[in-house]
Design a protein around this nucleic acid. Structure first.
Lengths: 175, 175
DNA sequence: TATTGTTATACTCTATAACTATA
DNA sequence: TATAGTTATAGAGTATAACAATA
């Protein structure tokens, strides 16, 4: 399974992905239960709460959502829930300026303590002070580097999707 | 935004989640393009390829999928695509034994090089040898600790979902 | 009774493509 | 022409609950 590949890297990678996967799942549960929002929505709100002023949709999306329509969808939900507002931007009439409302800020404040509690229990309780420092330094570097990477230049499709093959195997569609 | 909370922890946490989020997105793209599978499906196949023999559905799910039905769904796709087979288990007739097929192994082998390439580019290129070692040690510990954690004991729902509020705000339904 | 797995169903989310409007 | 954002739509994935069968 590791033909010619560095097994130390692979092991680290799998551990990282699974650890974060489990963490993510717990965090989603907490946010849904205590705030009625998803992690993506939390990220968007947190970002707006942290920013000095309003952000454009494009700025807001960076590193969180990977399609324009996906962000429009989430922004629509958040706006209808009264957590953000959308307005126009005098400097560039194409852009939409997104602001967090007082309700939005309140929700972040309401959800954050429990959120931190979960991350403590699942993440930081296993970390020494030194680990924390090192992990912070590492992941900040990785994030900044990864953000800058171009979206993978579509490799040739060598094989059909598992779902497609599944569709074939099922003799279903009306000829 | 960090009232009474440790900003160092919060910063590390956000960096971790965003870095892995971006990594995850690139990885999904690579797997879809070169293997026609999702990351969840890759995880399941990799786990089966790594195991000595077949695994039960429950063993297979651990840390990857969080509902029985979710796993049944994925297993259904993988089986119809010819990448796994499901059989019964003599020792416990309730269980289902999942085995990876030669095709499944071949697919993992086909996808893995490109997969490693992506993780190199997005993750390991930013890491020193020391970082790699440290990160591996940390995340293995975190994963094992997190896996053992009980699923959050449902906190009281204090607020309605953003989606629900959105549904209300839209005067749609037939009176 | 508890556990393993499946099925039916409803819902959330994401991405693609077509479109509008502004730079 | 390129960029910002929205809309329509289709598809993948997830979770809940009800179910069957075995321990």
């Amino acid at each position: 399974m590791t033909d010619g590949l560095d097994p130390r890297e692979l092991g680290t990678y799998f551990a990282l992905m699974e650890a974060v996967g489990v963490l993510q799942h717990h965090v989603e549960q907490q946010l849904r239960a205590e705030g009625g929002i998803s992690y993506v929505q939390f990220q968007l709100l947190a970002r707006l709460a942290d920013a000095d002023g309003p952000l454009t949709m494009t700025q807001l999306a960076d590193g969180v959502v990977y399609s324009r329509s996906g962000l429009t969808y989430q922004a629509g939900l958040l706006e209808k829930a009264g957590l953000i507002t959308r307005g126009s931007f005098a400097q560039d009439e194409r852009a939409t300026l997104v602001s967090i409302t007082d309700e939005g800020r309140a929700l972040v404040g309401q959800v954050l303590p429990g959120h931190v509690q979960v991350t403590r229990r699942l993440l930081f309780d296993s970390l020494s002070d030194d680990d924390l420092q090192h992990l912070g330094a590492i992941m900040t570097r990785v994030r900044d580097h990864a953000r800058a990477q171009p979206p993978r230049s579509a490799a040739p499709r060598k094989r059909r999707a598992a779902a497609d093959a599944a569709a074939d195997a099922a003799p279903d569609s009306p000829e």
